[in-house]
Nucleic acid binder design. Sequence first.
DNA 1: GGCACAAGATGAACCAGGTTATGAAATGAA
DNA 2: TTCATTTCATAACCTGGTTCATCTTGTGCC
Lengths: 193, 193
Amino acid sequence: MNSAIILSNINEHVQLTADERAYLESVLISRPFRHDELIVKSGDVARYIMFVNAGYIMSYYTDQEGDDHVVQFAAQGWWSGDLFSLSPDPRTIYSTKGLSDGELLLLPRSAQEQLFEKYPKFERYFRISFQTSLIRQQLRFIESYSLTAEERYLKFQLKFPTIDQYIAQKHIASYLGITPEFLSKIRKRLLLK
Amino acid sequence: MNSAIILSNINEHVQLTADERAYLESVLISRPFRHDELIVKSGDVARYIMFVNAGYIMSYYTDQEGDDHVVQFAAQGWWSGDLFSLSPDPRTIYSTKGLSDGELLLLPRSAQEQLFEKYPKFERYFRISFQTSLIRQQLRFIESYSLTAEERYLKFQLKFPTIDQYIAQKHIASYLGITPEFLSKIRKRLLLK
DNA sequence: GGCACAAGATGAACCAGGTTATGAAATGAA
DNA sequence: TTCATTTCATAACCTGGTTCATCTTGTGCC
């Protein structure tokens, strides 16, 4: 298993010893996925959190009316946002799908608890990760109110300059909280400028 | 200082020793506030995070156009959501205001770092707190897309059955992401039902 | 290549929610 | 108690975004 990316990611926040590194590697599970594969279905018991080691994935939420809402795109080097696997009821409310071929590294829930017990450094790493995710999530929430759909689309393009070739427009629309038709209009409007 | 509430809050997730408890109490700072007092102004260097020991506060974000967006209400027993104080640049983007008279317990940033160093248990406590906050924040984000303004208002009333006497309607409207006028319409519509 | 089917574009009618304006009621300072 | 200020309600009008229907353009797939 190639764990270079996850290790360098963790190393940005805490310095791991050889022991800690070895232990982490011993509990990670490689999980390759294919383009368009449904990796996790909502309602599943998700006994792990996911690190994207290669490729692209997206997570989405299906509401009562059966409409999907894209919550997150994740590229190489990202954790997937589904944290329900860590709370008492591990049934996830998100589905996760591959947007390309790729590989996940799964960190099982049980292993994670042991990781925290054994090496508090990992607790620190995840504390920091959750904290920055929370800040980002709050900013995104604010933006969804204070920016127009067009501004949000422009921001999206800046944030994911390369990913969009992997993502269908309807999924981008869903991520932005608008209909595909309206995204179409925005794109046309932007071309004319 | 009365730290019963914060201790029982922490105790729900980790068991503190007498030492740990004493240390925490020694670094907490009492900060009383008044109704309508501006406690933190956006742009301030916020060197602490805040625990509501008594009363109600709200945090809001002021956008480029100068419009306020209420991000969070917090009652007794809640941490305030402003985590920028923990990131490298501690200038906050939120303002915080008292909705009633009350008291905050401030946990200074420097003290917090020492707390984590000295007693990893606190790292665990905050890891768990951030994690559950993140889950809640994601749910709120999803709801803002998949529910109508009226449904969100009804949910708000369920979630904060007592707080609304302290909060002006325009702040509730802001929290819900709508105009005060539109909230007015919704309330009228609901009364007629 | 050719067929089937999903994705994107386009346009018209429509609606949830915003904007602006006005007045009434509440709050509060002097 | 008065005057000023803020908040809430109401109503007419406006608009960003939706819905639905049709058409075009991919994109597997055998």
